[in-house]
Amino acid sequence: MKPPPPTSRLVLVSCVLTLAAVGLMVWSLLDPRPVPVVAAMSIGQGLGTASLGAFLYAVGADLRSRYVRARAERESARPRPP
């Protein structure tokens, strides 16, 4: 089985982190006691920020690799001087 590219893995991690963050925040909404509220506002927001950062990094890395690949293809398609 072909391993997923690094950006896809990063997006996957980002998805899992976001689900955990949103879960903590929803827990604090449904059960507003000290521990859920503190957990949502600290761990939840930390995970959410980290996941968004990971996603943006993955998108940036993906765009960059596409750009590099496209440039390499353009250069290879250009006729070489005799």
Partner: peptide, 15 residues
């Protein structure tokens, strides 16, 4: 939207 906009909405309203 799934990883940024809506979670920020949850955090904002949830806070």
């Amino acid at each position: 939207f799934g990883l940024g906009v809506f979670p920020i909405g949850v955090a904002f309203a949830g806070n």
